Computed example of a mutant assay.
Amino acid sequence: MNSTTPAQDRVALVTGGSGGIGSAVVRRLADEGFAVAVHYAGNPARAEKLVADIVSAGGSAIAVRGDVADETEMAAAFTEAEQAFGGLDVVVNTAGIMVLGPIATLDLDDLDRMHRTNIRGAFVVSQLAANRLRAGGALINFSTTVTRTQFPTYGAYVASKAAVEGMTLILAREMRGKDITVNAVAPGPTATPLFLDGKDEETVTNLAKAVPLERLGQPEDIAETVAFLAGPARWVNGQIIYTNGGLA
């Protein structure tokens, strides 16, 4: 399902766009007037439902599929978005997985699986964005506030996200002269299935209380930061934005 949009309008591709934070980002960008390509890996029904909601509200959206770590599949997803809307101005890379466990006992297969999506996937998407975004565009990757808080059991996940931060900061410098900003958003504890899975009520409550604002973040809180970086924030470049209610 799709709706056409004038070529001069801004176009965004959101990886993991049918997920918790991803779907909030998609809705916020659609509200801002973006045509949006909603990327998914394995749940077409959820992505198509989101597309249908946007189109029925008068927006422009399509669903595109691809394994973020597969450069051929993701190149095809980029091409599909470009063909539908005339080009790409913003890429938001929310796709990621999180497996928690102590470093001493973490299953190395889980480490490899997480690094394939979080590191290779971020690299593939960043590489494509660097070559295909139009002037005036923005790439927004995703890290985590736990790179600062250093919570136990997050070691492998933080290792993958620290790699994302490193490549983001370097790519921003490599894009000199192209008028493309490259930043990363590092959410704090946010009420999404990815965050809540496997945590008991006491753990969730304690994490919420640790934040000076004394609540978990909502996906819409994160989407607000993304919309800022995708739109008016042309002088914010090569930065990690910690959107975490003051946790760290």
Rank of each mutant, 00 (worst) to 15 (best):
T149N: 09
Q127D: 11
A248I: 05
N93V: 04
T72C: 11
A172E: 03
A47Y: 00
D221W: 08
T117V: 14
R120H: 05
P232L: 12
V68G: 04
F123N: 10
L111D: 13
T4C: 14
G137E: 00
A7C: 12
L108T: 14
V204Y: 05
R132A: 04
I170V: 13
Q218G: 07
P212D: 04
M167D: 01
V204H: 04
V146E: 13
L171T: 10
Y242H: 07
N183C: 06
E48D: 10
I140V: 09
H39M: 07
F142N: 00
A84S: 14
L213G: 09
I222L: 09
A156I: 14
N141P: 02
V68L: 01
A63P: 06
M114R: 12
I170P: 10
N237P: 06
R28S: 13
F151H: 14
T190I: 02
A186D: 00
R120V: 04
A227K: 09
V211K: 10
I240C: 02
E220M: 08
N118D: 04
G188D: 00
E165Y: 09
A47I: 09
G96C: 08
L13D: 10
G42E: 11
R148P: 00
P189H: 03
E174M: 05
A210D: 09
T181K: 04
A191Q: 10
V11C: 13
E80M: 14
A233H: 02
Y40H: 10
A208L: 10
A186H: 02
F195K: 02
L133Q: 02
G86Y: 04
A77P: 08
G188R: 01
R27T: 13
Q127F: 10
G96N: 06
A69V: 03
A138S: 12
R176E: 15
M167L: 11
A233K: 00
